[in-house]
Amino acid sequence: MQAFEIKTHQPGRSYPKPHFFILNKGLNSGKPFGAPVRNSFVISTETNEQKEALFHLSYMLLESKCYRIYLKGSVIPFIYIADVKNLLVKNSKYFGQNNFESKLKALKKVEELEIVFKNKYEAIQELKRVLMCSMKFEK
């Protein structure tokens, strides 16, 4: 795995290299985003493939609750930038392994299915709303 750069995101700043954002405050600390969000770190890589792999690795770490043990603070929990970097570096050893690659492909397919089902659900909700509104109730 080639090196990646992690910095604290500053609103309004643009990044020329492929990048994504990781939330650093709240109970969802570690959650990756494609678009800039407040209270986040920015991960910059050399290639889009690295960015995608690190993005999905971060998502897998979030879903596995690996970030939870690193949360600090009592009112608004947060995670240190060094903790995020260490977790990503430690777990990037799985890149290139067949097991990781197959799970990454499966995860992408599941995300595509999730988008399709969300669209279908929204269409069903709209149909339900239209059917209810089309009834002529007496007032």
Rank of each mutant, 00 (worst) to 15 (best):
2 Q>C: 08
2 Q>M: 02
3 A>R: 15
3 A>L: 12
3 A>S: 14
3 A>W: 10
4 F>W: 11
6 I>L: 09
10 Q>K: 05
12 G>S: 01
12 G>C: 08
16 P>G: 01
17 K>N: 06
19 H>S: 12
19 H>W: 05
19 H>L: 07
19 H>F: 04
21 F>N: 00
25 K>F: 09
25 K>Y: 03
26 G>I: 11
26 G>H: 15
27 L>P: 12
31 K>V: 08
31 K>M: 11
32 P>L: 09
33 F>K: 09
35 A>Y: 07
36 P>I: 03
36 P>Q: 05
37 V>I: 08
37 V>Q: 09
38 R>N: 15
40 S>I: 05
41 F>A: 00
42 V>L: 10
42 V>P: 04
44 S>M: 09
45 T>C: 05
46 E>W: 03
48 N>L: 15
48 N>Q: 15
48 N>R: 07
49 E>K: 06
52 E>P: 14
53 A>I: 07
55 F>Y: 10
55 F>A: 01
55 F>C: 00
58 S>L: 15
58 S>V: 04
58 S>W: 02
60 M>V: 12
60 M>F: 08
60 M>N: 02
61 L>K: 13
61 L>Q: 11
64 S>F: 03
69 I>F: 11
69 I>R: 13
69 I>S: 09
71 L>E: 07
72 K>W: 07
74 S>G: 13
78 F>G: 11
78 F>V: 03
80 Y>S: 10
81 I>F: 00
84 V>A: 11
85 K>C: 00
86 N>W: 01
86 N>M: 12
89 V>F: 01
90 K>T: 14
91 N>L: 02
92 S>E: 01
93 K>C: 13
94 Y>S: 06
94 Y>M: 05
94 Y>Q: 07
96 G>Q: 02
98 N>Y: 13
99 N>W: 04
100 F>T: 00
100 F>M: 05
102 S>R: 08
102 S>V: 12
103 K>F: 14
106 A>G: 03
108 K>R: 13
108 K>F: 09
108 K>S: 14
108 K>C: 11
109 K>G: 15
110 V>Y: 04
110 V>N: 03
112 E>S: 01
112 E>H: 04
113 L>T: 04
114 E>L: 03
115 I>D: 07
116 V>S: 02
117 F>H: 06
119 N>W: 02
120 K>M: 00
121 Y>C: 06
122 E>N: 13
124 I>F: 10
124 I>M: 09
124 I>P: 01
127 L>G: 09
128 K>Q: 09
135 M>E: 06
135 M>V: 06
136 K>E: 09
138 E>P: 11
139 K>V: 06
